[in-house]
């Protein structure tokens, strides 16, 4: 399989994720967008790892780390969203604007 396919897919995923973060109003859906972006990275890493036939599998190692990090990030994110919901009773980010 040419390297190009996974790369294009990854780029598309990354773009969709970014769009999700930027355009969605629902905080939970924004977190989903972040998740998509991180997975695009994972896809990239694995694809390159396979392409290089890297003996110490740096790409895969980092993928593992990234998955963990993503979990941690999402955990923290959900916690914040929860607290936010408690504080302002909405997850619509347009209404969450920080007091200025």
């Amino acid at each position: 399989m040419p390297l190009l396919y996974p790369l294009v897919l990854s780029a598309a995923l990354f773009g969709i994720g970014l769009y999700g973060v930027l355009a969605r109003r629902n905080a939970v859906l924004m977190l989903l967008g972040v998740e998509l972006m991180l997975n695009a990275v994972n896809l990239n890493l694995v694809a390159f790892d396979a392409w290089f036939a890297d003996t110490i599998h740096t790409g895969q190692v980092l993928t593992l780390f990234t998955i963990t990090l993503a979990a941690a990030e999402i955990g923290l994110g959900l916690a914040i969203v929860l607290a936010l919901f408690r504080a302002v009773r909405t997850v619509d980010v347009d209404e969450v604007g920080a007091e200025r």
Binding site: L22, R25, M30, V93, D94, V96, G97, A98, E99, R100
Partner: peptide, 14 residues
């Protein structure tokens, strides 16, 4: 720019 709207910040960054 500092409206407090997170998405605007993310957009600026992007």
């Amino acid at each position: 720019v500092q409206s407090g709207n997170v998405q605007r910040y993310a957009t600026v960054i992007a």
